[in-house]
Amino acid sequence: MVNETIQLGKGLVLRNPVLTASGTFGYGEEYTDFVSMSDLGGIIVKGTTLHPREGNPYPRMAETASGMLNCVGLQNKGIAHFIETIYPRICNFDTNVILNLSGSNIDDYVQGAERINALDKIPAIELNVSCPNVRQGGMAFGVSCSGISQVVSEVRKVYHKHLIVKLSPNVTDISEIAKAAEAAGADSLSLINTLMGMSIDAETRRPRLSMTTGGLSGACVKPVALRMVWQVSKAVRIPIIGLGGISNATDAVEFMLAGASAIQIGTANFIDPAISAKVVRGIAEYCARTGFEKVSDLTGQLIVG
């Protein structure tokens, strides 16, 4: 039997390395016909902001070669609604329920984190400083060392559980941003969020997305994500949660070999709603086949040279 447990530190223990990525798995409820929550290491629920957001106008999605663009824009009903309505429904899921928290200014992040800190059954926050689809804040914090340092250190003061910081790939040197987040008190890093892109309909000469640009995800981003996970793993000591185009167990193993301690399944949930549980089984099978007794031993086992 392969030991699948992953210790991410600061009280966050996963029964296996597979999490579902924010914005691709709703609040988990949308997928209970396909996946048993008890099969997963955790779920990261839809990006939530202090105040409700209507998100961006339709159309919000465009298919691309081996991927898709979205410009949803953090549509959500706000933290109060999450706490009163959604949390009671999902807090007893037999898995780690992690909230993805976003904001348009430092105060929003801090107030949001304070309120989530009070929820017993949320063991971690994933701080979203990398959403490319909101005009203010969001990615603005995640693309400079000073911005990320400020938001992470302020949230750190009020949030006492495991703090994951989700990094944007839309930067010159992601290692520098990662180091700044680590220094400011992040317990782990997740990367990558979507890559900024756009799509044009040549017939109408118009952009396909209402916001013109959007975030690219899906299989096409995997090589970029893998490279960034590898780079960041050389730069920081805190655990890394890798994501970006993971579509099967082999992809997941590659991210762990590159340096990730855990992984997230995102856009692939749209194509196969049962993929997350399949990836869990596939990673264990890989370990059994290749002689790894513990899944956690895969991390950083890339052979170079």
Partner: peptide
């Protein structure tokens, strides 16, 4: 029949503006 990705209410791509919002 708005353009959609997940079909399950998870990705929030296919929204229609209604009297109750998106």
């Amino acid at each position: 029949e708005n353009l959609m990705a997940c079909g399950l209410g998870a990705c929030l791509c296919c929204v229609e503006n209604t009297t109750e919002g998106h």
